[in-house]
Design a protein around this nucleic acid. Structure first.
Length: 575
RNA sequence: UGGGGUGUAGCCAAGUGGUAAGGCACCAGGUUUUGAUCCUGGCAUACCGAGGUUCGAAUCCUCGCACCCCAGCCA
């Protein structure tokens, strides 16, 4: 795997180094624990890279573990996409694929252990009552009237909960910790709840009793022998509970939780809940829409595993909140594709150019290198004839200062071909330019003309051999760098509900109307006809593109723009 | 106003008492048959603020300030 080579330390690696040095830990083991309720996104890439990267560098293991304790939102589709995405990113999974649900039986036994010690009890309070009893951030909570049931009674009740004798939501198992704790997570957190109406994607109908994350996670880590359990900052408050569970249950191993800051990016959202809304409300095509920050979306957009890994490497790992600029990500892709993507010529908005001094019906085949620096990528043949197409943006009647492209009476180099001079412009009744008449200099193939300097170079395709293509130009999905008031987004994921209007939902209100522009008139050089889906190219002077899996009208190949080339001219032109 | 965290350049981020790495972005110049790439140079007298300790402080102490997270039977 091509890899960012420079070693980069971070506070987590420093903790591991210290643990190894003191002997607190002898074998490094990490885990990547997604819940299969959505697709992996850039934030997960950071986590995958961290966890698998550490395992690799310390000769340890990293388990993929599906945190599947809430069947309500989970599905096999997500399980499969997650495995596919992790593998595509270039991490080897082997046999190390686990499910928290594999441990349900052990977890149940552990719960009995807590009950027997008087450290857990079955509570009959409703969820509303539990909330009331919990108190607030500033007021302590009150103890449930069921809190002092005996272990024997609790054992019996818990058994019956498992047996399906109670309705969903009527009883829960709670840890008996401290209702007055300033840390709300310690105010007798729920350990188990009853869910009858869903079939779990792994355990099917075997259980109606489901453990919560806070209870499941430390125990799963312990059972798998995880040494360092890395999670995001919002779980920092949960660490005392993580430790409480491990202290009061006889486990074979004692893992430690370390928290790091989750990834935030400009102009994008990295929350599975919100991404789910985009998909379910049809704002994007699907989870793999090229505008989505999902691994599947980035892949279809044209990103490479290397670019994503490089990105994860460069942003680092800390505990401070941050918002990473898009240019950081884009640069990682440009770097990879500049080195590896074959070059091609495609005219996005065609304008016909007729070379009057070139014989009618004649076609010659010019050699064009596939890469300006990497000769191992070979060459291809480019047909050249009397009629060609250039891009409308490469000709200008009233050229601004420093314009290097084609103007009336001016010369320009056709990339990989001859120098041409524009002699006349043909317009239609509306004054729109129809075609350009030029003459070419036969002495300029592979060499510069003598006595004059031709600065501009433009791309082109031969009219006789051009293939029609559909080009999709993608931009950021959102028009604003951050979605302020994003907290107002309704938590209900089926948000097309009640009286909420689209303008009220920042997700919709901040959409970039130009996030997708489809060009249906584009023309490409003939070699592009035989490309496979996922083949990536640089279309010279335009950007990096990837062949999509879909076809446009009349079977046209579709290419997605992954990222533009850096464009200093655009900056000069429109400062 | 309870608890838990975080503050180093426009954005990431090293730095762990010895005088502010690196990347992205940006600016200037050079090369160039991609206004790309590449190359060269520039870009924090200063680390949230104010005091203090010290020969010496981004690093230690004190007091402030700002921002983030937590009141799901979600994770």
């Amino acid at each position: 795997m091509t890899e960012p080579t420079s070693v980069k330390t971070n506070f987590i690696r420093q903790i591991i180094d210290e643990d190894l040095r003191t002997g607190k830990c002898t074998q490094v083991a990490t885990r990547f624990p997604p819940e299969p309720n959505g697709y992996l996104h850039l934030g997960h890439v950071k986590s995958v890279y961290l966890n698998f990267g550490i395992a690799e560098d310390y000769q340890g293991n990293c388990n993929l573990r599906f945190d599947d304790t809430n069947p309500h939102k989970e599905s096999m589709q997500f399980v499969e996409s997650i495995m596919e995405d992790v593998r595509w990113l270039g991490f080897y999974l082997g046999e190390r694929i686990y499910y928290a649900s594999d441990y349900f039986e052990r977890l149940y036994e552990f719960a009995l252990e807590l009950i027997d010690q008087g450290l857990a009890y079955v509570d009959d309070l409703t969820s509303e009552e539990i909330r009331e009893y919990r108190g607030t951030l500033t007021k302590p909570g009150r103890e449930s009237p069921y809190r002092n049931r005996t272990p024997t009674e609790n054992r019996d009740l818990f058994q019956r909960m498992r047996n399906g004798e109670y309705l969903s939501g009527t009883k829960v198992l709670r840890a008996k910790i401290d209702m007055e704790s300033p840390n709300i997570n310690l105010r007798d957190p729920v350990l188990y709840r009853i869910r009858h109406e869903v079939v779990h994607h792994q355990t099917k109908a075997n259980w109606c009793l489901y453990p919560t994350y806070d209870y499941t996670h430390p125990l799963s880590d312990a059972l798998e022998g995880i040494s360092h359990s890395l999670c995001t900052l919002e779980f920092e408050d949960h660490r005392p509970l993580y430790d409480w569970v491990l202290e009061h249950i006889r486990v074979p191993h004692r893992p430690q939780q370390i928290e790091f800051a989750r990834l935030n990016m400009e102009y994008t959202i990295l929350s599975k809940r919100k991404l789910t809304q985009l998909v379910e409300n049809g704002i994007v095509e699907d989870w793999d829409d090229p505008r989505m920050p999902t691994v599947a979306g980035l892949r279809r957009r044209g990103y490479t595993p290397t670019a994503l890994r490089t990105f994860a490497h460069r942003i680092g790992v800390t505990k401070s909140d941050s918002i990473v600029e898009l240019s950081m990500l884009e640069n990682c892709l440009r770097e990879d594709l500049d080195a590896h993507a074959p070059r091609r010529m495609v005219v996005l908005n065609p304008l016909k150019l007729i070379i009057d001094n070139y014989p009618k019906e004649q076609v010659e085949y010019l050699d064009a290198p596939n890469h300006p620096k990497d000769k191992t990528l070979g060459t291809r043949k480019l047909p050249y004839g009397r009629e060609i197409y250039i891009d409308k943006a490469d000709f200008c009647e009233q050229a601004p200062k420093n314009y290097k492209r084609l103007i009336l009476g001016g010369e320009v180099r056709l990339r990989n071909s001859y120098v041409v001079r524009c002699d006349t412009i043909v317009k239609d009744d509306q004054g729109e330019i129809q075609e350009l008449h030029c003459c070419y200099d036969p002495e300029t193939l592979g060499k510069n003309p003598v006595g004059r300097k031709v600065k501009g170079v433009i791309h082109w395709v031969a009219a006789s051999h051009a293939i029609p293509m559909e080009i999709r130009l993608y931009e950021r999905l959102f028009a604003t760098a951050t979605l302020e008031s994003s907290k107002n987004i309704p938590k209900n994921k089926n948000s097309k509900d009640n009286n909420s209007k689209d303008e009220d939902n920042p997700l919709i209100a901040n959409l970039n109307p130009d996030s997708l522009i489809v060009l249906t008139q584009a023309l490409g050089e003939p070699s592009l006809a035989t490309t496979q889906p996922e083949a990536r190219f640089q279309f010279e002077r335009e950007g990096y593109f990837i062949r999509d899996k879909l076809f446009g009208p009349e079977g046209r190949p579709v290419f997605n723009r992954a990222v533009t080339l850096r464009d200093t001219w655009a900056k000069i032109k429109t400062p």
